[in-house]
Amino acid sequence: MALLAAAIAIGLAAVGAGIGNGLIVGRTIEGIARQPELKSQLQGTMFLGIGLVEALPIIAVVVALLDMFVFR
């Protein structure tokens, strides 16, 4: 049971992180295509956005690890 819970947690976290990061990077690429001279600024903001969006999926990963190794 604990393994099933951990798998569901990680799976949903992966979906959330994938969709969120995909949107961010896609818009960044669009922005770079429109104005190539802002490339480094847009890239910096992109990394910041990825770090923020991945916060909750990473917390879900920690919950899944906790579930796998602490509960039977």
């Binding site: 770090g51 923020l52 991945e54 916060a55 909750l56 990473i58 917390i59 990963v61 920690v62 690890l65």
Partner: peptide, 16 residues
């Protein structure tokens, strides 16, 4: 909470 747990989660998961 998110400021602290973001850093913890990233580094802990990497270490595991």
């Amino acid at each position: 909470l998110t400021l602290g747990l973001r850093l913890f989660g990233n580094i802990y998961a990497g270490e595991v």
